[in-house]
Simulated assay, not measured.
Amino acid sequence: MRKITAGLFISLDGVVESPEKWHFPYYNDEMAAAIANSAEILLFGRKTYDAFAGAWPEREAAGGADAGFARMFGDARKIVVSKQDLEFTWRNSEQLRGELVDAVTALREEPGGDVSMSGSVSIVRQLLDAHLLDELHLFVHPIAVRSGMRLFEEAEDSIPLRLLSSKAFETGVLHLVYARTAPTEETGYEDVKAHLPQDVA
């Protein structure tokens, strides 16, 4: 079974929109190592794919310092989620066929390497809801952006998560890795008051 992971740059106030406007001052070697991607398959929403396809093939062809990173993206199998029929010029690109949850479930149950997502917030939300996301990597930046789309929309149901690992970068960015978990039991003040400090004067 394949493991499905997603990575998102997120501000302290939960914004995930347009990270290119606020993320780069916090980019360093620690983050570069953390986002290095060895996944066999990259899963994209159409807008995120268009952004990647509009930049990385040219960077690979230019042969600059980032050409190796660009070649990694080019060599990976790329699957794009869209309700429109798409045509591709970037190599190893294809469109996901069928309903998202059914298609990703089938993909996850195949033998093979991991599936990774970068950005594509709407896809991340849907896979979290469907319990199909094995790991959610959040790179929490020490900045309050104060406007833009948040990762989680308002809804009646909560999404309980379990922290798998955490690391603080020198820039103040926190790399937090979560997985979905079972809902917690209902707990009130009477259940927790025994944990209050007992030696307070």
Rank of each mutant, 00 (worst) to 15 (best):
V101H: 09
V80D: 06
L163F: 07
V101T: 09
R91H: 06
E20P: 12
D199I: 08
V16W: 04
L132A: 10
Y26D: 06
E87T: 15
G119L: 08
E190V: 14
E185I: 09
A144H: 08
K21C: 07
D75G: 11
W56C: 01
G64C: 10
N92D: 10
A65S: 12
V173P: 11
I123A: 12
W56N: 02
A155I: 02
D66Q: 07
G63Q: 04
K83Y: 11
A144Y: 04
D13H: 04
Y27M: 15
E30M: 00
F152P: 05
V145L: 05
F73I: 09
V80F: 02
K3A: 12
T184K: 15
S120K: 05
S18H: 08
T171N: 02
R59M: 15
S18A: 14
L133Y: 08
L42K: 08
L128M: 03
K47T: 15
D157L: 06
S18Q: 14
M149W: 05
L176V: 01
L133H: 08
M72W: 12
S120A: 06
I41K: 00
D199N: 07
E135G: 03
E186N: 14
E60V: 11
R46K: 00
G45C: 03
L96A: 08
N28T: 09
V104L: 12
F24N: 11
L96F: 10
A144V: 11
A70E: 01
K167V: 08
S38V: 06
Y26Q: 00
K167N: 06
Q126D: 13
S18T: 14
L96D: 14
K47W: 04
G119S: 05
D129K: 14
R180V: 04
D50S: 02
